[in-house]
Amino acid sequence: MHIADGILSTDVCVAAGAAAGGALALSWRNLAATARLRTVPLTGMMASLVFAAQMVNFPLFGLPASGHILGGLLAAVMLGPWAGCLALALVLFVQMALFSDGGWLAYGANVLNMGVVGSLGGYVVYASIRRFVGGPRGVLVGSVIAAWVSVLAGASLFCIEFAASHLADGFNMPRVFLLMAAYHSLIGVGEALITGMIVSCVLTQRPELIYAPDDSSASWLGAGRFAGAGLVLALAVAAFLAPFASDAADGLETVAQAAQFDQLAQESSGLNPFGYSVPLPWSGDRAGFWSKASISLAGVLGTLVVFVMAHLFARLFAKPRGAAAEGNHVA
């Protein structure tokens, strides 16, 4: 999900950089209000931890590939939204500078998609859920759902940035959305699962390490929380509705293609084995509607899976295990 240079246009990079810079400055100022001296070692350590955690591979069921955690929401749950956002920005900086993972110009966009949406955006969803579901159960349910939503929202934001960069190039935007939504609903389920497992591990062993907002920051979160959560949710939902909403654009394209149909048809049959559609397994003659419908179905299924997962986590792990937990962390 790291954007390399050249993928986004320069003005989009500058705009995203300004937004990300503003969010980082806001995070830094809000941290300054609490305890800035303590922040430096804690945030730095969290950043190294997220960096290391991204090296731990999780085998994908039945596939010869493996995935890893993104960690934005995990950092926010442990350290709070502001420090979590900063930690992700640090991780992205080191990955950019030392591993050339993500470009220098696109750094702002990367921070926006993964740090700001992943930590700040994920945290408002998490905090909203915690308001309704209290206790350790709320922590688990909130982090599982918020992890999934934040991954999708980040992917959706990338699509918007990509679309804004290549308006003139005639790229097929609905298809970008389609691919990103399909892949990231899967990635998001993995992220939710891993985040839930790690948080439940911390909850049973050292529950006091989980970030609990004090009263001074609660006022901001109380006022803007639901608006922020709504925005993030809207972004996530956009990933699934975009293929339908862009039917008008598709229509325009069809007209344009019909106008010069012969020429295009020859080219595509000669050079492009896939014809006009993404090679989805179900693509037949009337693949258009069904491929869109199946993406949205995947969204609904993914949502169901995540909610079932959240419920199971709450059932299985949220029980108090006082004595066992006390004994564990001495060792």
Partner: peptide, 28 residues
Amino acid sequence: GAWREWSAAAQLLGRLLIRSLDRAERIH
């Protein structure tokens, strides 16, 4: 099986998280 590997890796990360945050407190 994959499920065991997932839970083992997640517990590994959970422990690492706790240890790292404790270390950060000590260093601070």
